[in-house]
Each structure stands twice: as structure tokens, then as C-alpha cells.
Design a protein around this nucleic acid. Structure first.
Lengths: 245, 245
DNA sequence: CATGTTAATTGGTATAGACAACTATATATT
DNA sequence: AATATATAGTTGTCTATACCAATTAACATG
């Protein structure tokens, strides 16, 4: 069950084991887990290692600890957890839609004022830009404009940019992706959006922009998306606050 | 500096000490912290305790670890961090607005279908309901409808509901607040919203609903807000993903 | 000068144990 | 019957130590 000689850390193996119990429905929300000591004894590992595994799951909101009582399976989160970065494809699958993609523009160009600002670059630098319509069950869901810092993400091809950008950055370029920040706002569709999304000008649009950084803080991607207001809800889960007031 | 006999845990004292260094600007983004071993030696505590302190700050996104290199102060987050629960008041202050509040309805009533669903209650139970216009610099920013489970949050007064609900729940009732989930969507203002927000029907509105739970998962609060699309942007920070794909 | 090697330093993982603080239950005591 | 009191079980905090893996800089070698 647990392989001490595996290259995978023991605490990670424990995490997966616990996750599986929950995914399989063997452990249900409200159930109490075996105590940490029993865990440690059963797997013949240290209690601190058990704690490390459990602590991460608590931070993700999957488990809940109560001093003096025990550790419990948390109530199920509603809709999409959507903490952490999720791609449009994953997002749509989680919502039960068939994701699709219609690229109508791919170019290398100097950045516009907004993009240069967001990606912290000079006007003489270059960005890769993609424009596409995102589909859900073959009907337009969003219009998406992506700008990628060409000085950071080098030798990018159209195919890779479309399908596996993050993989390329981490696996091929050996960079590590860090945090992202998103802003959402409500607006009305203009002529361009209306046409591409097959709605009427004046219909509601949810604008989502995302800026993604490397681990060292360098911004490398800026995405502006216009989602159809009648088809899309954005969900977010806020874990209990650990901050002081 | 660190008091081993304090009722506050040592790891917490270390956290505060580090936070202060950053707040004071003594440590700036990109700076490297003393190594964990040096920390431990300096404060005469165990390295594992230092790690506990640092790990939480890393999870909050304030620090960044790199194996073999060190631990660094993370780049500053942009705009509102807004992870964790933030009140309208705090939100507006952070944006440089003067927050205001015009309550025009406070009642105890059986829940509507939607509210009963959201708060997981019977139609014969009771909820406290508040309706108010939220102001920023004395101009309407949002319309807010709050429903509070009267069986969980007992003996609520109009004043408390308006000003310090969360404090009341935790301090007076002795309950612990847990996670919340929010959804955002774009829509057009109807007659009612238009009038109260001093905009035109058909103008863009950002609908935000929040459901807040106790630590044991019981939902106790359901809030639906209509924000003026021309005045409000919602920002969110996504820490690096710890999830598998 | 370029290249490979070594050593030192860093965070990552794991151990075995200790005591504190909190909770629930059983057991006396009044 | 109600109320203390012990006690066993839980998570929370902390120690001291060990070895692993990644990075960096100094050094030796070609």
C-alpha cells in the first residue's frame, strides 16, 4: 500500500490513498478518519509524516481537523473548486460541456500599450498573440485574446500555443509557473463580440482577464476573455481565512 | 523577541516577526531570508518549528521556497489580494473609497425557495433578511440582499447584522466560521436594480452570490449582490497550483 | 580558458518521542 | 439525580536528529 523505497514521498502516497478513499465514496463527508497515531502505526511511519499528508489536504479544504475530537471528511464543495489554475478545457469538462476551439489569428507583434504594461515589457519587444473563439458543445462560449511574452517563452509554435502551453513552459523550457491574478467585470457586448459569440450587441458579457507569472514573479501571459453572460457563471471557493483581521 | 513561555505558539511568533519585517519594508520582494538552520540557531529553536512558520507564509503566497537556493520574499500581489473572506467595507477601503450603507429592509421571514435550498433549511424555518444599498464615496456601488439562518445565528439584532455579524458569530455565539463559495455572473439591470443603483435598465450588472459556512460545513449565510458594472471590478489571486492535473 | 569535481549550503523528507490542550466518556461523590 | 473527577483518546506544538536532492561556488584538471 505504501512503498518506502518509492521515489514518491511517503506523505504524498498517504495523500493519494486518502483521496482515493474519498473519491471512491468509501469515506463520506462527516466521517471521521482514523486518528493520526493509528495511521502512523498502521503504515508503520512517523506521526509527523501523517500530519504532513493530512495538513495539505486540510489546506485544500478536503479534510477538517478538530482539536480533541479528530479529523473529518469535509462537506463537498459546490460546483467547480477552481482554486488553482484551470484551463478552459478542464473548466468546460468539469461543467459537463464538450470543449472546442476556433483559432482565427496567430501572430508575432510588438505589444500594445495595455499588454506592454501588463507584461512589463518595452514597446520594442515581441509578443505572440492568439485570438480564438472558445466553444462549449459546439456553441460559442467565450472570445479569448492571449498575449505571451516572446522573450520569456521562446520558440513558440502555433500548435503548442493552442494545446499545451503550460506543459511546454515547464517541461521543455524548464521554467516553473507561479501565481496568477484575475479580474472580472461585467460589460455589454459590442459589435465584434456580438458577432463572434452569436449574440446581440448590448447583451451581457463577463470579461475575465488573467495575468500569469513564473515562480520568480516574471509575468509571461496576459489573457482577456469575453464570456457570454447567459451561458457562464464563475465560481470560486474561499477556504477559511488564516489571516489576522 | 521570541518568548518560549508565551501562550502563543513559537511558530506563530516567528510568523509575526517575519510579517513585520516585510510590512516595515525591511525585507523587500526578491530578498532572501536567513536559511532555516540559521533561523533555528538564532532563535534557539528547532528547525522543524521554523519550517512550520515559513510553510504557512509560503501557502499564503508571501514567501517562495527554492530547493538548494533559499527562501525569498514573494513579489507583491497586485490589487486586492481577496483570498479569504473580505467584507464590503474592507474591500472599499482597500480600493480607496469611503464605504457607506443604506439599509432599507430588515425582517424575519420564512425562506424563499432559493434561500431554503442554499441554506439547506425547511420552508417552515426562519431567516433574518437584510436589504441594503452599498455606497462608495456616497454613490451607489451595489445592491445587497442577505439571508441569515435564524436557527444557527440566534438572537440577531438589526445593528449587529449590519455592522459586526462575523464577530458576533465567533465571539458571542462561540461558533467558528469556515469556508465560503462565491459565484459571479454578468447580467443586465432590471427596473428595480436600475432605480436603486441610479443607473439605466439594461446597463451591465455583476451579480455576486456568496454562501458562507461554519467550520463543520453548516451553511448560515447567503448573500446576493448586484454590483454596478461600470464601477466595480472583481480581483482574485490564484497561488501556484498544488493540485495534480 | 574551458571543463569537470568537490565541498558547502540550501530546502525536502522522515523519524521517534514528548508534553500541552481539548473533548468525550466513564466513574465516584455528594 | 446532579455534579465533580479521573482517564483515555484526540489534535496541537516542539525537539533533536538524520539523510536526501538541488544549487552554487571554489577548486583542480585538462
Amino acid at each position: 500500500m505504501i512503498d518506502k523505497n518509492s521515489p514518491l514521498p511517503i506523505y504524498y502516497q498517504i495523500q493519494e490513498w486518502i483521496r482515493k478513499k474519498m473519491d471512491d465514496g468509501e469515506w463520506e463527508p462527516g466521517d471521521m478518519l482514523p486518528s493520526e497515531r493509528i495511521f502512523a502505526e498502521q503504515f508503520n511511519i512517523s506521526r509527523m509524516t501523517v500530519r504532513q499528508a493530512i495538513t495539505e489536504l486540510v489546506n485544500e479544504g478536503l479534510l477538517r481537523r478538530e482539536k480533541g475530537k479528530g479529523t473529518f471528511v469535509a462537506e463537498k464543495k459546490l460546483e467547480q473548486p477552481l482554486q488553482g489554475l484551470t484551463s478552459f478545457t478542464e473548466d468546460m469538462k468539469a461543467r459537463g460541456f464538450q470543449p472546442g476551439n476556433k483559432l482565427y489569428e496567430f501572430r508575432v507583434t510588438p505589444p500594445s500599450r495595455d499588454v506592454a504594461d501588463a507584461l512589463n515589457m518595452k514597446k520594442t519587444d515581441s509578443v505572440y498573440e492568439l485570438e480564438r473563439v472558445r466553444l462549449a458543445d459546439n456553441k460559442p462560449m467565450a472570445l479569448e485574446m492571449t498575449s505571451i511574452h516572446a522573450g520569456v517563452v521562446t520558440n513558440l509554435s502555433k500548435d503548442i500555443a493552442q494545446s499545451s502551453l503550460y506543459n511546454y513552459i515547464e517541461q521543455t523550457l524548464g521554467l516553473t509557473i507561479g501565481h496568477a491574478s484575475q479580474t472580472l467585470e461585467s460589460a455589454l457586448a459590442g459589435e465584434k463580440e456580438a458577432e463572434l459569440l452569436q449574440i446581440e450587441a448590448g447583451d451581457p458579457i463577463l470579461w475575465i482577464s488573467r495575468k500569469t507569472h513564473l515562480q520568480d514573479g516574471t509575468p509571461f501571459e496576459y489573457v482577456r476573455s469575453a464570456y457570454r453572460g447567459d451561458r457562464y457563471k464563475f465560481s470560486i471557493h474561499l477556504p477559511r481565512s488564516t489571516r489576522r483581521h
